[in-house]
Design a protein around this nucleic acid. Structure first.
Lengths: 203, 203
DNA sequence: ATTATCTATAGATCTATAGATAATGC
DNA sequence: ATTATCTATAGATCTATAGATAATGC
């Protein structure tokens, strides 16, 4: 059994754990934690249900593993925002990276949204431990930029919230966006968001 | 049995249906459709489980009834946007009404978000039938305002999407917002959003 | 007479485990 | 020998119904 004490995960173990996690990301992001079943995950992974439970102790461990992996990916675009770069460029590039993530990783966005929507029962510690200090650090950077006159004065926290909201909207509310828009939203959204944040932040 | 053919709903029927729907809004918005159970709804309503099923044919009918009622409430702030009013004022007021709704009706916002997040299985027809024509109509109004030079030129659809995203974020991601912010977000959010949309839309 | 409510439980769904068997690596 | 997989099923949870009883309105 692949428990925590075993030394080296075999090739087949690595492969099957990946298959399971990818299948689970499909299923959890589409139906939520409670809406997802091991049957669906097993079917999507091409493995039997008991075999899923050979690699993970249960449904919850699969979900937690996905959320843990997600946190790093999710924070990465903000981590990359560089205090030494040009302020307006750094922020507008951050917006575009987040928008690109909504297009390229919609399942991850929805998994995250579903978890927060239901009160972050499994993610709350991560938000406190990882997201909060990162946000504080980056808001301090943004505040410095504003104090130096490189950006217009706005509330840095609400600025970042609005970037999260507007960019993730295109993944999380994709169903609605596609009902209301006839063509692919990505390019027109990119242009709109650039225009909005440029007009807001240009000093 | 209170089926569709019965004439007049009694007082007690009205009351109990309200109790059930209010309880169900609590439970569905907190745990999602699949995560909610009739036991939880019954407990929250203060009625027995079979009694719940005396008033509604099943879990799904309760959910559908809530979504149907919600659609009207949800569109109302946009309906109120008046083509005859001052363009910038109308749009900034719309933003504030939507933000107020996130504060006053967070359960409704989360119910809606959860439904869309999972592909709108029960709401898709409403989106096409009600939301899409309304959005088209209001986007035409906004476009006229822009053509008349009363507002800066931006993509009206993405403008509205961004308003939905930024305002509903404070209800749907409330858990996250409260981890990251020490005081109540409403007033500072109102100020930030006013500033953002004013700078974007002022011609 | 009709409406409303309760107890008890059927039937479906789902997570997880037991126990046997097959495949792999030294 | 160890790792991986399978069949069968236990046990929990959940929706919904059956059938009896209580409350209400003409």
């Amino acid at each position: 059994m692949p428990d925590g004490t075993s030394k080296k995960p075999s090739r087949i173990q690595m492969r099957n754990r990946s298959l399971i996690l990818d299948a689970a990301l499909d299923v959890f992001s589409a139906h939520g934690y409670r809406g997802a079943t091991l049957d669906q995950i097993a079917e999507a992974a091409g493995l039997s249900k008991p075999n899923i439970l050979y690699y993970f102790t249960g449904k919850e461990e699969i979900h937690v593993t996905l959320l843990n992996q997600l946190m790093e990916t999710w924070l990465d675009p903000l981590v990359e925002m560089d205090a030494a770069g040009d302020p307006l460029t750094e922020l507008l590039d951050y917006v575009q990276r987040k928008l690109d993530m909504s297009r390229d990783l919609p399942r991850e966005s929805r998994l995250f949204a579903g978890e927060i929507l239901q009160g972050a029962p499994r993610m709350l510690p991560h938000l406190r431990a990882d997201l909060k200090p990162l946000l504080n650090e980056k808001c301090a950077v943004i505040q410095t930029w504003m104090n130096d006159g490189k950006l217009a004065q706005v509330d840095p926290r609400h600025l970042v919230f609005s970037i999260w909201a507007t960019t993730q909207h295109y993944a999380d509310f994709d169903t609605q966006v596609r009902v209301l828009l006839d063509d692919d939203p990505h390019d027109s959204a990119a242009q709109f968001l650039d225009q909005m944040y440029r007009s807001l932040l240009t000093p």
